[in-house]
Every structure is written in structure tokens, then in C-alpha cells.
């Protein structure tokens, strides 16, 4: 995992601990949002809003729907921010 992805993971971990009262050690790449972390579709919207504040990318809820694990979240954000940087 490169540095950028590490940063995104750290950001996600901070948000999840703060917003969803989860334990930091639970938030590993292979953790599944719904089954392991008890994050439902309503939560996902709030998570998205919060992550967009700290990681400046345009992401729609439908793009976020495919996401199953923490790794998927990292991937989506890494890809989008790579695209955003390529444009800039």
C-alpha cells in the first residue's frame, strides 16, 4: 500500500472512530462495512459526507454503493483523487 492510500486509510479510521464509536483496531482493510462494522446504508451517507470534507473528491452515493469493505472505500477514494489530480 502506498503512502497516499495509507493516508486515506488513516483518515477513514479517524472518521469511523469519531463518528461511529468504533474501535480503531477493528478498522482494517479487509473489514466488511455492514457485517463486521455495523455500518448500514444510512450510515454510509453520513460517512460519505464526512469523508468528502477531508478528502476533496467528487463522489456520488451510487459510486459508493459498490463498496463492501474498508479496502473498497480506500480504493474508490484513491482512484478518484488520482483522477482529480490528473485533471488539475
Amino acid at each position: 500500500m502506498n503512502e497516499q492510500r495509507e493516508n486515506i486509510l488513516a483518515q477513514i479510521r479517524a472518521t469511523l472512530v469519531d463518528l461511529f464509536e468504533l474501535d480503531g483496531s477493528e478498522i482494517v482493510p479487509e473489514a466488511r462495512l455492514y457485517e463486521d462494522l455495523d455500518i448500514d446504508s444510512i450510515d454510509a451517507v453520513d460517512l460519505l459526507v464526512d469523508l468528502k470534507k477531508t478528502i476533496s473528491v467528487e463522489i456520488t452515493p451510487s459510486q459508493f454503493k459498490q463498496v463492501r469493505t474498508i479496502q473498497d472505500v480506500v480504493d474508490v477514494f484513491a482512484e478518484l483523487s488520482a483522477k482529480a489530480q490528473a485533471k488539475a
Binding site: 461511529f20 464509536e21 450510515d43 453520513d46 460517512l47
Partner: peptide, 8 residues
């Protein structure tokens, strides 16, 4: 509080 916390 933030809404996710309120739900919980």
C-alpha cells in the same frame, strides 16, 4: 452530536 452518534 453528529447523526451517526445520535442513531446509536
Amino acid at each position: 452530536l453528529p447523526r451517526p452518534k445520535q442513531y446509536r
